[in-house]
Design a protein around this nucleic acid. Structure first.
Length: 661
DNA sequence: GCTTTACTAGTTTTT
DNA sequence: CTAGTAAAGC
């Protein structure tokens, strides 16, 4: 009973129970830093050592990274654990849908639409329906994507979504409903899947009794992590998988729910107890991560929430410095201040990767990147625009997509618009000739005589021909990069930086034999470049400082944490209309950020900010400017706090003052 | 008629 | 910084 001893030695009684109760539903309410990763790790290990075939264990997590991490930790004790099936709902959906595509009437290969592809497609369809030439403003493609996507993952009609999020567009409810239908039809006709489809189609498959029974039979033990951030579809999927055998464990913390904008429902935690009334509830409240002063702040923050959370975190490390609030004059000195402090810590021997800098939105970190670069402090950013979402990488990928599937209209559209002398009209004309058959060579040569675009089209055709004849995929990518480089230089002022991204792509391509696999890894699911950069094998002292959005920092921890921009307008972020629900989520976001810190926590803000070139005064975040919270902080800098009732100048007064000066 | 360029307004979080 | 729009240019 070696494993048994290991469990007993490494888990507290609640954790032990969560790891070892294998039969029947279990809901684990796990506060931040209470060792839920460890629970899952040991539960997997326990299952495997009880003789459960690892292929019958399904671990659904929020990111693939989280799944990888837990499985690899369990595998250190028992190599069999490597065979456990783990990933996100989306990646699980993708593999199930691929296997049962025929039941859905879809033909392989299936292609994946990322967010930008979805927008492009919606825009095209809206234009075809004549919606874009409206006198009254029709929603932009980004908004259309949000609305359509929200209607799917919240299970609401377009009208309901508009009512809540975009009441000013209510008049277009009918048109957008129609657009949504066309969008779905197009995807089905062209074997395309987007993020929502990965869940929708999975659920549709699970509603077919034979499929459901086969999958429920296969996966006898199911674990779902970050349950507070699952949406309605995901909860239904979990239920369908587990309703027969009922061996399901959901782990979550309603106080850490930060994805409502994406359809997440912390209510799923409570509803779990309704669909599985016999579920055992286990609460983890002993925090192993942070010192008590940090947890006091976290507890006070969450105590100020409208909705009451029942957990109170208790630290196992009592002592530690109080969290510090640093107030700077402007964003630049805030950045300088943090960079300076980081350098100091580094010089004192704190390894960079033990320090994390967190912020609500990426733009907050811009000045910091400058300050770090100046001091030669290596850093890497998490969150924000990802590699494959940048324009130049999408350009290049479109060329590869076109070769992999010559009927891919979106990819062709992008490729053609890059050709000199080709605009929307010529591109549409070419698309009409190319995509029905996929015979691009003939279609392209026909237009080579065109006075304006002919030359560019010929270049494209010759390059594609050469690429198609390349002996290996890797060489094909080389040729494409050479074709694309001059276009890139022509189009982007900042081409040197972009060119180095192209170089990275070229290197990533070296590991692949075929475009299909490459595109799937890169576009459909988590991109490999992350794992390339996240090398765990790097010596500890060369791992860089992490800058991360709070959303991306979920589940991570650092010895020293900086939270930038704790000012009203940044955290909570000011957005045109903010409901009470959204404000509560902003509070939880700060809670999540605070609970990432183990020993030292710095909260920083600046009084001056720029909004569109105009200087504005900022006040401390309303979550911190609270009599129950402020005394928990060590203050540094001038707390130039504007009076709560300091009256706004108002248009007329401002006008007078400006005219006088 | 179509493409390119110049300008302006608004800029969250992510599988 | 980028998406959308208006005007200029071929």
């Amino acid at each position: 009973m070696e494993i048994e001893d290991l469990l007993k030695a490494n888990l507290n009684p609640q954790q032990y129970e969560a790891a070892t109760v294998l039969e029947g539903p279990v809901l684990v309410v796990a506060g931040a830093g209470t060792g839920k990763t460890r629970v899952i790790e040991y539960r997997v290990l326990h299952l495997a050592s009880q003789g459960v075939d690892p292929h019958r264990i399904l671990l659904l997590t929020f990111t693939r990274r989280a799944a990888r991490e837990m499985i690899s930790r369990a595998s250190r004790h028992n190599r069999l654990c490597q065979e456990v099936e783990g990933g996100t709902f989306h990646s699980f959906g993708f593999s199930v849908i691929t296997r049962y595509a025929h039941l859905l009437g879809l033909n392989r290969p299936l292609s994946f639409l990322d967010e930008a592809d979805r927008e492009a497609l919606l825009h095209r369809l809206a234009a075809q329906l004549g919606y874009t030439q409206r006198k009254v403003r029709f929603p932009s493609k980004g908004t259309l994507r949000e609305v359509v996507s929200a209607s799917f993952n919240r299970g609401e009609s377009i009208e309901e979504v508009l009512l809540k999020d975009y009441p000013h567009f209510l008049q277009w409810a009918g048109d957008i409903e129609r657009l949504r239908e066309e969008y779905v039809r197009y995807k089905l006709d062209h074997n395309l899947l987007d993020y929502d489809d990965l869940l929708i189609h999975l659920k549709i498959l699970l509603e077919q009794e034979p499929v459901r029974r086969a999958l429920a039979e296969r996966y006898r033990f199911i674990m779902v992590d970050e349950y507070q951030d699952t949406n309605r579809l995901q909860a239904e999927i979990a239920y369908l998988l587990a309703k027969d055998h009922r061996n399901i464990m959901a782990v979550g913390d309603d106080a850490q729910s930060i994805y409502a904008f994406r359809g997440a429902r912390y209510q799923n935690m409570f509803e779990f107890l309704e669909v599985f009334p016999e579920a055992r509830v286990i609460k983890l409240e002993r925090n192993y991560r942070s010192s008590q002063p940090i947890l006091d702040l976290a507890n006070a923050l969450i105590d100020g929430a409208k909705r009451k959370y029942t957990k109170v975190l208790k630290a196992s490390v009592a002592e530690g410095p109080r969290p510090r609030l640093l107030i700077f004059k402007d964003p630049e000195s805030e950045a300088e201040g943090i960079a300076h402090k980081v350098k100091e810590l580094w010089d004192e021997g704190v390894e960079l990767h033990r320090i994390g800098v967190l912020f609500r939105s990426m733009y907050i970190a811009r000045p910091l990147e400058v300050a770090l670069a100046r001091r030669g402090i290596p850093y890497r950013t998490y969150g924000g625009l990802r590699f494959i979402e940048t324009a130049h990488i999408k350009d290049l990928l479109s060329h590869i997509k076109v070769l992999a599937n010559p009927r891919d209209e979106l990819a062709w559209h992008r490729v053609l618009l890059l050709v000199e002398g080709v605009g929307p009209k010529t591109a549409e004309e070419l698309l009409r000739r190319i995509t029905p058959s996929g015979q691009w060579q003939g279609a392209l040569s026909e237009l080579e005589g065109h006075p304006r675009s002919g030359k560019g089209i010929r270049k494209l055709r010759e390059a594609l021909l050469e690429v198609a004849q390349a002996p290996t995929f890797h060489e094909a990518v080389e040729i494409l990069c050479d074709y694309y480089a001059p276009i890139l230089k022509e189009r982007y002022d900042d081409y040197p930086r972009r060119l180095s991204d192209v170089e990275s792509l070229r290197q990533i391509a070296q590991g692949y034999r075929s475009p299909e696999r490459f595109l799937l890894d890169l576009v459909a699911l988590e991109s490999p470049e992350r794992s390339l950069l996240e090398r765990d094998d790097l010596p500890l002292d060369t791992r860089p400082l992490v800058l991360s959005t709070i959303h991306s920092a979920k589940g991570l921890e650092w010895t020293v944490v900086f939270i930038m921009g704790v000012a009203d307008g940044h955290l909570p972020i000011s957005y045109t209309h903010t409901s009470e629900e959204e404000m509560e989520e902003e509070r939880r976001l700060l809670y999540v950020a605070v609970t990432r810190a183990k020993r030292e926590l710095y909260l920083t803000m600046s009084h001056e900010g720029h909004r569109g070139g105009i200087r504005v005064f900022q006040r401390l975040s309303r979550f911190l400017d609270d009599p129950a919270v402020l005394p928990l902080l060590e203050l540094e800098g001038e707390p130039l706090v504007l009076e709560e009732d300091s009256p706004a100048l108002g248009r007329e007064k401002l006008l007078k003052k400006v005219l006088q000066s």
